[in-house]
Amino acid sequence: MATNLDIKYGQNTHIVGTMNVDGLPNWGETFANIRLQPSTLNADDIKQFLPADAYTIASRLGTVKIDGRFLGFYNDFVANGSFATALGNVQSDINMKINRSNNASSYRGRLKTQNFNIGRLIGNADVIKTITMDGRVVGSGFTLEDARMEINADIAQLHLLDYNYRNIRTDGTLSRQRYEGRFAIADPNLVFTANGEVNLANNNQAFNLRADLDKADLKALRISDKSVIVQANADLNFRGLRLDDFEGTAFLTVPPSLTRPACRPRHDPGAVTYR
């Protein structure tokens, strides 16, 4: 049954397009093919239909402008389209599986963002802010604490702490605020490839990485207020996100190139210890 849609619901939801459904009146077994023309959707208007974790995230998006297609069941569907939100723009070709009984909702597919404020979305804006990326994600969970995502993506920009990093390639897993995998950065002030773990949990930010570090301008990266440039092959194991807070070790397999000689280690030119 094909139907033209022009539905207003709640305060800010207006759905315009066409819908072909099979299975009514049994909503749980109804398969829908919905093609939306420019429409709007607000989480507050549909709160009763969303799992609690999904609503928490969706409400931060504000009133979403949608142009795309939804194909599937209400709890297992593909969303293919563009979304303009209060946090930035998103394009997706994602399969969503929503499980209301145990909050184990999952997703997989292609995701593209433009200056999207992921920090506000996941409730950790002090650490991470906007991201512009194009890649594939497979995962479950909607908060930084419970999300587990496999990410294979090109990241044009990622604003982390006080610096907006450019040109990142990542292939790894994010689970319970910990990223594990491979990534490479070709930023004007940071050029390296690395393999290991990065923990973004509050009060437990830590790095455990093996890295080929071609260049790190610590002052430009706003890690230090002193002029320090490092070039080395490194084995990094430390806590903290700013130089003054670092605690741990950095083993450098080749002597670092530092613009400030006073920063050279006094005894072993291949190791630096922060306490």
Rank of each mutant, 00 (worst) to 15 (best):
N4G: 15
K8G: 06
T18N: 07
T18A: 10
N20T: 06
P25Y: 04
P25Q: 04
W27M: 05
F31Q: 09
I34V: 11
S39R: 10
T40R: 08
T40D: 07
D44T: 01
Q48H: 12
P51K: 03
A52H: 14
D53T: 13
Y55M: 14
T56E: 05
A58S: 11
A58Y: 13
S59N: 09
V64Q: 06
I66H: 01
D67F: 07
F73P: 02
Y74V: 10
Y74I: 14
N75V: 02
V78A: 12
V78Y: 14
T85W: 14
L87Q: 03
D93C: 05
K97Q: 10
K97N: 10
K97W: 06
R100S: 07
R108A: 08
R110H: 12
L111Y: 15
K112L: 06
N115M: 10
F116C: 01
F116V: 02
G123L: 13
N124Q: 06
A125N: 09
V127L: 08
I128C: 02
I128R: 07
T130E: 09
M133Y: 00
R136V: 10
V138H: 04
G141H: 01
E145G: 10
A147W: 10
A153V: 00
D154R: 08
I155Q: 00
L158N: 00
L161Y: 15
L161V: 15
D162W: 03
T170C: 05
D171W: 04
R176F: 08
E180F: 05
G181M: 03
F183N: 00
A186S: 05
D187Q: 01
D187M: 00
N189Y: 01
N189V: 00
A194D: 00
G196M: 01
E197M: 10
E197R: 10
A206W: 12
L209S: 05
A211V: 11
A211T: 11
L213V: 03
L213H: 04
K215A: 04
A216L: 14
A216Y: 07
D217L: 04
L221C: 03
L221H: 01
I223K: 03
S224M: 05
A232P: 01
A232F: 02
A234K: 09
N237G: 15
R239F: 09
L241F: 11
L243I: 12
D245Q: 13
E247M: 15
G248R: 03
G248T: 02
F251E: 15
P256R: 12
P261A: 15
R266Q: 11
H267C: 05
G270D: 13
A271M: 06
Y274M: 14
R275H: 14
